[in-house]
Design a protein around this nucleic acid. Structure first.
Lengths: 161, 161
DNA sequence: TATTGTTATACTCTATAACTATA
DNA sequence: TATAGTTATAGAGTATAACAATA
């Protein structure tokens, strides 16, 4: 009984790989869909872009931040902050004051108009967040948050060189 | 006993809102960090951009797709596919053939070089995926996947108008 | 000399839509 | 007329680095 020659199936055959089940791809697609579903709210109804929305929310949560603090809070870089802040100053959504202790710092907070705008945006985006989270039980929500945080920590390890 | 006048605390005070715990923000930041940690692998070592990497992986998983099928598989739009495909044809990573049944369709598959490149990229990105997933137990991984899928379904409901 | 924030510039991405070739 | 894919072009977003003011 002669053996049939075995075909080497590994030659030119890439390892099994399915994009659909690749975590980074899945996360990108998910975040993209979720982002879009929120962005359409603050951009269309309130003429904010992503950076402006983040800064608005950040200063609503914690007033009197400097550019650098805003950058850390929102994960935007200093240029994005600078540009968005200027656009928002033009629209009188922010008030910029000097820090007498260190005049390199700009100290920013929301104007009454900014507060007003924020208080209009928040319920709208929160409603949408609630809709998205209806997909999950409370337990699932908690686990999802915990897992997200853990993966994020790992990813940050990689990016801090 | 005269009542002290109550201060209306809702005036000009936005509802409680913390960007850090807002699901869409958390997801965006997470996906961004994870994406970056993978992109630095395929872009630096293999000179691929995101669209090219997705197409490479897609055709490795399922050869002989048309542009439209690739677009659906990778969630890239037809222009992004067209551009990436042309760049990859220039690098001889793909083979384009005509579909005699409908000559509007281009049918694409990986060349030997494309296969070879893919088989180099896969272990590298899989290793990184594994590193990221070490953050989670198997149970957590499963729950995370399930939860992701559920949220994604909800988000797609919103985007399909 | 280092830091905060601004500006300039170039590059990449994205979005719209006009265009071609097929059907 | 509708579809697959291409091209053109403009706008948005991003990245680098030079710059001014201040410490």
């Amino acid at each position: 009984m002669t053996k049939a020659p075995k075909i080497d199936e590994t030659e030119h055959v890439a390892p099994e790989f399915e994009l659909q089940s690749f975590l980074p791809y899945r996360l990108a697609v998910l975040a993209d869909a979720v982002s879009q579903s929120i962005a359409e709210l603050y951009s269309e109804r309130f003429a904010l872009n992503r950076a402006e929305w983040r800064i608005l929310a950040a200063l609503g949560d914690e007033p009197n931040m400097t550019g650098k603090q805003l950058s850390a809070y929102t994960t935007l870089d200093k240029m994005q902050v600078s540009r968005a802040v200027n656009a928002m100053l033009d629209r009188s959504l922010l008030i910029r004051s000097e820090n007498p202790a260190d005049r390199r710092n700009m100290v920013l907070c929301l104007s009454d108009q900014g507060q007003e705008l924020l208080s209009q945006v928040i319920p709208v985006v929160q409603e949408r967040e609630k809709f998205l989270l209806e997909a999950l039980t409370e337990t699932e929500q908690t686990m999802f948050e915990v897992a997200s945080r853990k993966i994020h920590e790992k990813a940050k390890q990689l990016l801090d060189h």
